[in-house]
């Protein structure tokens, strides 16, 4: 009997088998190149460090303890602070943009296109572009010097400010798009109904627009906050070692410092934080779905 036919007949009665068969290439890929390395990293975070990189056999939690030394907590604090600030700025600037796009009529598609446009260039190239703008001999300082407004270049970068500029410009589209798609679904007649019921503009915003766009706000905030936590290039190029974030710490442990276990442990602390953020998101989403929104 034809083998192919036999398989189809047998699996056709077992939907679960089919589902696994369809998933297996992707699942195998993730298993091999994501889960396995992750397990290695988790293992090595609990092993003693070998000098100049690598690990020795054994078990220790010293690297997790080490992470709670003030110098590293300070980096963690800065990472969280920068990421929160970046998320807040993206939200404050992104929401009005998304709102205007939903009401832009025939301009809508062009505006969405413009929001996505930066993705056509790599993140690193965009970060370098900001360097060209903000460094001592960059565009801003050159113009200000030429017009005589300043006598010597402003120390715009490397600095925390420059890192923040880099983060916000890199992640702003991730905030705009989900909020836009939430607002797009908002039926305009709801706002008219609210208006007839006596809601002035502020009440319409706080009672109707804001709650109904909350799924987009939360999704956008996570899409900004999580990559911001893990960002490395921005702080490296624009912070110049003075505004290190977690990504820079991890990178240095695996390269110059050669302390793999500590790098791994730092990564896992960060991952735990990301998982917390995702957990908050899922909870919020479930509540929204339970409400039938």
């Amino acid at each position: 009997m034809n083998l192919r036919l036999a398989w189809l007949r047998w699996s056709g009665r077992r939907p679960a088998v089919r589902a696994w068969a369809l998933m297996s290439p992707g699942a195998a890929w993730l298993l091999l190149f994501f889960l396995l390395p992750l397990l290695f990293m988790f293992g090595s975070s609990l092993m003693p460090a070998r000098l100049y990189g690598g690990v020795d056999l054994g078990f220790t939690v010293e690297h997790y303890k080490q992470f709670f030394e003030p110098v590293y907590l300070w980096i963690l604090w800065r990472t969280v602070l920068y990421s929160l600030a970046c998320t807040a700025l993206c939200l404050l600037m992104g929401f009005p943009v998304a709102y205007v796009i939903t009401r832009a009529g025939s301009w809508k598609n062009l505006l969405v296109f413009l929001v996505v446009l930066p993705f056509w260039t790599s993140f690193i190239v965009r970060t370098f572009a900001i360097m060209f703008l903000m460094r001592d001999t960059g565009v801003i300082n050159t113009v200000l010097l030429a017009t005589g407004l300043i006598d010597e270049p402003l120390a715009l970068m490397p600095s925390g400010l420059a890192v923040m500029v880099g983060l916000v410009s890199g992640f702003l589209p991730f905030m705009v798009l989900p909020i836009y798609s939430s607002l797009e679904k908002l039926d305009p007649s709801l706002l008219e109904a609210a208006e007839v019921l006596g809601a002035r503009p502020v009440a319409r915003f706080t009672k109707i627009i804001l709650p109904l766009s909350m799924p987009g706000i939360v999704a956008g905030s996570l899409l900004v906050f999580i990559p911001a936590l893990g960002s490395y290039v921005t702080a490296d190029l624009l912070g110049g070692g003075k505004s290190d974030m977690m990504g820079n710490l991890v990178q240095r442990q695996f390269t110059t410092a050669g302390n793999w276990p500590f790098g791994s442990a730092s990564s896992f602390v960060m991952m735990a934080m990301v998982l917390c953020a995702v957990f908050v998101y899922l909870q919020q989403r479930d509540r929204a779905q339970a409400m039938g929104a």
């Binding site: 007649s189 109904a193 007839v196 109904l212 409400m291 039938g292």
Partner: peptide, 12 residues
């Protein structure tokens, strides 16, 4: 007061 064609109830 007004009643809308699609009811326009607030879904949330």
């Amino acid at each position: 007061a007004m009643v809308f064609q699609n009811y326009a109830l607030f879904p949330h």
